[in-house]
Design a binder for these strands. Structure first.
Lengths: 241, 241
DNA sequence: CGAAGACTTGACTTGAGTCAAAATTAGTGG
DNA sequence: CCACTAATTTTGACTCAAGTCAAGTCTTCG
C-alpha cells in the first residue's frame, strides 16, 4: 500500500512528469503523501514581470519554482528598491508560518510554479516531520546566501559586486558550470540592468559601466545584452573580492 | 512521570535558574526532555572580544545565548569584514546541520552561553519534531532580519544606516522599548564604532560623524561614547529611510 | 516601420572614504 | 588612587568612486 519507492507507479500523474520532484521538497515524500499533497497542488504559468505576491498580503499559498527565476524584493516608502533574493528551480517559495511576508515576489523570467494552499502544506508538515526538516535545510541555505550577499553589499566595490553577481548567475543557471571541472559558462541574465542594480545596491549606469570593463578586460563576452559567456570562470571568480 | 508542566519540580536544577528558559528553544521541551538535554549542557562565560567559533572550523557544539550580545562576522581574504548578524538572549547559535559555518562568532559584550554538544542536540531534534519547529521559527526570523538588513546595506544613506542601527539596538536591548507605548530608550552599545562600521558597510569615521549629526539634531544624546539615550524613538525611526 | 523600453556612454557632482591629528576613554601596574 | 599607556573616538582637510543628469544607440514588438 505505501511502499517507500519514489519510482513506484503509485506516484500521482501530475508528479510523474515533474522534473524537479526528486530535488525539491517533494523528494522526501512517499507516493502516498505525494498523492495527498497533489490533490491540492496546481501548476501555474507566469510571464516575465508578473507580480506573484505582494508585501502586506496575507500568505494563502506556498509554491515550488519549477522553471524560471523569481526575484524577491523589498521597497522603502520613497521607492528605493532592494532585491533580497533570487529563487531558482527547485526552490520553495513563501514565508513559512508567517502572517505576511514583507516581501514582493515577481517573475524575473517566464516562470512555472507548483502552488500549494497554505493549509494543505502546513497540515502535511505537522504530520510528517521529514518535510519540515527538508524545508529547514533550504531555509538554512537561504540564510547562508543572504549573509554572503550582505558581505557583497556592505564591503565590495562596484566592480566586485558585478563580478560576484555574474558568478552567482553562472553557477546557478548554467547546469554545466556546476561541475567542478568546467571552466567556462554561458547563460542568459534573468534580470534587467535595473534589477541587477537593485540587487547590488548600484545604479543602472554603474552596472553597465562595470560590465563594459569586464568585457574589455576579456573576462566576459556580451553576446547580446542579456546573453553572456564566461571563457574562464576562475578568472571571473578572482574578481569577486 | 512526565506531566507537561514546565513549572514542575522535575525541572533540572541547572534549568530552574535559567531566566530565558521559556523564551528560548527550551520553551518547547517538557521536564523529561529538558533533563535529557541538561545532562549534556554546560554554561560558559566569555569576555568581550573572545572568539567563540571560527570560520572553517567543524561545528561540534551549538549554544543558547543567555546573556550579552554575540556578533557574527564574515571576512574577505584581504581583511575587509562584514558583520552579518547579532544574537541576543535567548537566541540559538550555530549553523544547524552544517559542515562548517563559514562565519566567525565573537562575544561583542561579556557573554554567557549554554552549550550543547552537536550530537546531543541533533538526537533530540530527530526524536522531537516540536524542537525542530521551534528552531525553524528562529531561523525564519533570522532570514527576515538578514533581508531587512540587505535593504539597509544596499539602499540607505550613511545617515539612515546609523539611525537604523541605533533603532535596532534600542528595540533589542532596552526591555522598556519593546512595549508599544514607550517613547524613549536608553541603552549601551554592544559594539565599538569599528564594529558598527563593519555592520553598516561604513568606515569608523563616517559612523562617528553621523552619530554627531544625530546628537546635534537632538535625536539622540551620547551620555558616554557607548551609552546612548533616545528621547523619542519615533523621531529616530523617521530617520531610518 | 515606428514607438517604447532597455542599454551604453559621457560630463559633471557629491557622499563617503582616506589620511592625519587631536581628544577622550579605558586599562594597568605602582 | 593616580599616572601612564594603549585603544577608541572625534574632527578636519582632501580625494575619489559611484551617483546624477543628459544624450544617444540598440532592441523588441505591435
Amino acid at each position: 500500500m505505501s511502499r517507500i519507492d519514489i519510482h513506484n507507479s503509485d506516484t500521482p500523474v501530475l508528479c510523474q512528469s515533474c522534473e524537479i520532484r526528486h530535488k525539491g521538497m517533494c523528494g522526501v515524500l512517499d507516493p502516498k503523501q505525494l498523492l495527498a499533497l497533489s490533490k491540492h497542488t496546481r501548476i501555474t504559468r507566469h510571464d516575465r514581470g508578473e507580480q506573484l505576491s505582494t508585501e502586506d498580503t496575507p500568505i494563502t499559498a506556498y509554491a515550488n519554482v519549477m522553471r524560471g527565476v523569481v526575484k524577491l524584493t523589498k521597497m522603502l516608502e520613497d521607492g528605493r528598491q532592494q532585491v533580497v533574493g533570487l529563487q531558482f528551480a527547485p526552490d520553495f517559495m513563501g514565508r513559512l508560518f508567517g502572517q505576511d511576508n514583507q516581501i514582493t515576489a515577481e517573475a524575473a523570467s517566464d516562470v512555472e510554479l507548483c502552488k500549494v494552499p497554505r493549509a494543505a502544506l502546513e497540515k502535511l508538515i505537522a504530520e510528517y516531520p521529514q518535510l519540515e526538516h527538508r524545508l529547514m535545510q533550504q531555509v538554512l541555505r537561504e540564510l547562508d546566501e543572504a549573509r554572503d550577499w550582505m558581505m557583497t553589499l556592505g564591503r565590495k566595490s562596484a566592480a566586485e559586486k558585478v563580478a560576484s553577481f555574474l558568478y552567482l548567475i553562472a553557477t546557478h543557471t548554467d547546469p554545466q558550470a556546476h561541475q567542478a571541472n568546467t571552466k567556462s559558462a554561458e547563460f542568459d541574465l534573468p534580470l534587467t540592468r535595473a534589477d541587477i542594480g537593485d540587487f547590488l545596491g548600484l545604479t543602472i549606469e554603474t552596472v553597465s559601466r562595470q560590465m563594459t570593463k569586464l568585457r574589455i578586460a576579456g573576462v566576459i563576452a556580451i553576446v547580446a545584452s542579456r546573453h553572456i559567456t564566461v571563457p574562464d570562470l576562475e578568472r571571473l571568480k578572482s574578481r569577486c573580492g
